[in-house]
Design a protein around this nucleic acid. Structure first.
Lengths: 332, 332
DNA sequence: CTGAAAGCGCTAACAC
DNA sequence: GTGTTAGCGCTTTCAG
């Protein structure tokens, strides 16, 4: 690996000049060429490690997500990536596996590696951003709001979405509508379940409603378990609102396997069914703008990186629901 | 941000001693405690950026994959991550979007950031690893073999899998079996198609076979387009072998939509259908050990990082096919 | 067991 | 327009 000094010597200039050539300082046409040639010959690549130490920052942004196997987050990641790339930044993805310890480890890294900023879909409600904030590294929260830190955030309307999904089932004639939501300590899980509850209350269907609420892990297996559990009740639900895409897949697998596929039992999913091949009869879907979430978050972050100092903003993106009249009709 | 000098001063020792405490050098019990306390009080986090520059290496491994939205790769990523974490390494994911330029950019970064090593699922057949190799950074190829570089690799049996999938369709009575494979310049795409071709030839079904071959992009849309294209032929195929998971989803979507779902038209997929909710009637699946691919690659890489110098190895993992007798039977 | 000093490769003042 | 110099924060001989 050749250094900036090797290039300088070969080109007969100082290291500073080489640095200027590489970073667009003012250098005469002729020396520029000499330096370029020398660099070429030595196949010189500047050490980012050194640059980073010197300038105390790098063109890398960390995207910290709870589940890399969830298409919702990968789609979001693509959004982030596309705008970051366009602005000359690289994105590194960190998977926390919904584990606050892993998350905190990755946040430490982002900090001590002098990354330009971080986009965070928090694993819990106790993320410690104090280090990053103290060093004035911008952080923007995505999907899940920040807790106790005054930072930019971009989310969807979780409560509203939970409500619309549930209402679609109610409108289709279902009455015993269960809810399968995520972990207790995850904000989005709580809000979506609240949306469900409010809709049920508003429709006067809230008798013994708590028996129909399940907390699972936002993963396929969790959805399966919860669905099986619900179906084994003495009075099983006739429809279910599932609070994320993966658990909906799990629930559907169980229903299909038992010959209870929608519309035999109604299903409303918060989040698109990934890679679905079935015609969505009897299924209502709250579509989430996953990619846009990423795009928006990345834009906010870039603004902050570029010195924007305005008060922190929260952007709520619209989610639209698909409820074809024929598709969620209750079968009699 | 406090530095090692701040801690040193507060503890009344030299920076060297602090460094020793942080990295396990031999320091007296008592000074160790003083240093620890001081570090605690100052909430000191060592700068990885500086450490990295000094030791010319870091505990980070880069995982470079072509499509972060493909569950096959994310599953592989989980495998890599799990073993890396256990060994004290962090993984950063780089998405190349099947674009050799992006790939080369990320490889440059891995190099100039002094990462410990890289696991690469190449975007094409011209990846330039010379920089990394010159600096003795270990690279292991995964899923797709290396081209022109003598490095460790872990793959599956692509040709064999293509063959078994096709044979399953033949055995089920299909005769005009099309093949939808990936981009021309991607090795796995070629090999899987070859497996198909050989099986067809062996069965004497190779008349005009080339008309039934399609190259697409390994993505859902590509699978849809190819399937539509095939169905619009004057003599459409009665079955199709699709060379990856995502394109199979696309093909299935088209078939379901047209009322031609398997077993009306036979389908064999190289790679599991992600998040599938349908009972796989009439579908043969070559199961790929995605996670194991990642685990194996990570283990290989860690060995190299730890100084293993043995000649390079290629490991081929088994893929097993699911072909329930009833499930791929041709309907008459 | 501990400290002094050099240096990883680069950039940013400051001179000329 | 170009060179000199002084670090960024850490680790690592080499002395003591």
């Amino acid at each position: 690996m050749s250094t900036i000094y090797d290039v300088a010597k070969k080109a007969g200039v100082s290291a500073a000049t080489v640095s200027r050539v590489m970073n667009g300082g003012s250098v005469s046409r002729e020396t520029t060429k000499r330096v370029r040639d020398a660099a070429e010959k030595l196949s010189f690549t500047p050490s980012r490690a050194a640059r980073r130490l010197r300038v105390q920052s790098s063109e890398i942004i960390a995207l910290v997500i709870p589940d890399i196997e969830n298409p919702f987050f990968t789609s979001m990641a693509r959004g982030v990536e596309d705008v970051a790339q366009a602005a000359g930044y690289s994105v590194v993805l960190c998977n926390t596996d919904e584990d606050p310890d892993k998350e905190s480890h990755y946040l430490d890294i982002a900090l001590s590696e002098n990354m330009a900023g971080v986009i965070l879909a928090a694993a819990g409600d106790h993320s410690d951003l104090s280090g990053l904030i103290a060093k004035r590294r911008p952080v923007v929260a995505v999907d899940r709001g920040p807790h106790g830190f005054d930072i930019d955030a971009v989310t969807v309307d979780n409560r509203g979405g939970g409500g619309s999904a549930t209402k679609a089932l109610i409108k289709a004639g279902f009455t015993r509508i269960a809810c399968v939501t995520g972990p207790q300590n995850v904000e989005t899980a709580q809000l979506r379940a609240e949306g469900w509850r409010q809709a049920m209350v508003a429709a006067g269907l809230h008798d013994g409603i708590d028996a129909y609420l399940r907390h699972a892990d936002f993963r396929v297996g969790g959805g399966r378990d919860a669905m099986n559990d619900l179906l084994s009740m003495s009075e099983p639900p006739d429809a279910v609102f599932v609070a994320n895409n993966l658990m909906s897949v799990g629930a559907l697998q169980v229903l299909v396997q038992r010959g209870l596929a929608p519309p035999a039992i109604g299903l409303a999913s918060f989040g698109d069914l990934p890679f679905s091949t079935l015609s969505p009869v009897g299924i209502a879907v709250v579509h989430l703008p996953a990619r846009e979430l990423g795009v928006t978050a990345a834009n906010l972050l870039l603004e902050r990186i570029n010195g924007d100092e305005q008060p922190s903003r929260t952007i709520v993106l619209r989610n639209k629901i698909t409820e074809r009249a024929t598709s969620v009709e209750k079968k009699h």
